[in-house]
Every structure is written in structure tokens, then in C-alpha cells.
Simulated assay, not measured.
Amino acid sequence: MFTDIQIARRSALSLSKTLMVPTVVIAVGPQFAVICADEVDPEDVVVNQFDPFA
């Protein structure tokens, strides 16, 4: 979990490029989390998406 959106975005981008999987940053209350794009639930609030193939 991250409290700073910039750190969460950088981590998501790095993870996406390293693992070659789409990642997303989601808001969880006042914090942010990075997960794989295929694990997003409909009720999750997506802040950013990163696709290493785009």
C-alpha cells in the first residue's frame, strides 16, 4: 500500500515493464495499491493503467 500517488504510479509502471503484464493503480480509502489488471474487481476505483505492450 502506498500513501503517495506518484510512488504508486512509478511502482506500477516498473512492475508492468519488468513482469510484462498490465498493471493498475487502485484507490483503497486514502491509500493506493498496485495490482495486475486481470485481478481488478468492478467495485475497485482504478486510478491509472499501465500496459507494457502499448
Rank of each mutant, 00 (worst) to 15 (best):
I26E: 07
I7N: 15
R9E: 07
E39A: 14
K17W: 00
V47C: 10
L15D: 09
D44K: 02
V46G: 13
D44A: 07
V24A: 10
E39T: 13
I5K: 14
S14T: 10
F53Q: 10
T23L: 09
T18F: 03
F32H: 11
P42S: 08
V47L: 11
V47D: 02
L15E: 09
M1R: 01
F2W: 10
I26R: 03
R9P: 00
V24H: 04
R9Q: 05
L19I: 05
E43I: 06
A54V: 10
F50T: 03
L15G: 14
D41G: 07
I26N: 02
R10K: 14
V34Y: 04
V46F: 07
I5R: 15
V47T: 06
C36M: 07
R10A: 05
N48C: 04
T18Y: 00
L13F: 02
E43M: 06
I26K: 01
G29M: 00
C36N: 13
I35C: 09
A8T: 10
R10I: 01
R9I: 09
Q49V: 05
C36W: 06
L13I: 04
A8H: 11
P52A: 14
F32W: 13
E39D: 15
S14Q: 11
E39K: 14
D44V: 01
V34E: 06
A8D: 09
T23E: 05
S16G: 08
V40Q: 09
T23C: 12
A54L: 12
R9V: 00
C36D: 10
V21D: 12
F53L: 08
M1K: 03
E39G: 08
M1T: 03
D4P: 02
P22Y: 07
D4G: 05
F50D: 00
I7H: 15
R9Y: 01
A54P: 00
V24F: 01
V24N: 02
V46N: 10
S11P: 01
E39V: 06
A12Q: 03
V25I: 10
T3F: 04
V25H: 03
M1H: 00
A54F: 06
L13T: 03
F32R: 05
I7D: 15
T18P: 00
K17Q: 12
V45T: 14
A37C: 12
T23M: 11
Q49D: 01
L13G: 00
A12M: 14
L15H: 03
L13E: 04
S16K: 09
T18K: 12
I5A: 10
D51K: 06
V25C: 06
S16C: 11
D41I: 01
L13V: 04
A37L: 13
V24G: 02
D38Y: 13
P52I: 12
V40N: 08
L13Q: 04
D4C: 08
A12L: 11
V34L: 03
I35G: 13
I7M: 15
Q31E: 06
F53M: 07
A27M: 12
M20P: 00
Q6Y: 09
K17M: 06
T23H: 15
I26A: 02
L15C: 04
V46Q: 10
V24Q: 03
Q6D: 14
P52D: 13
V46A: 13
Q49I: 01
D38F: 02
C36I: 12
A8M: 11
S14Y: 09
V21S: 12
A27I: 02
A27L: 14
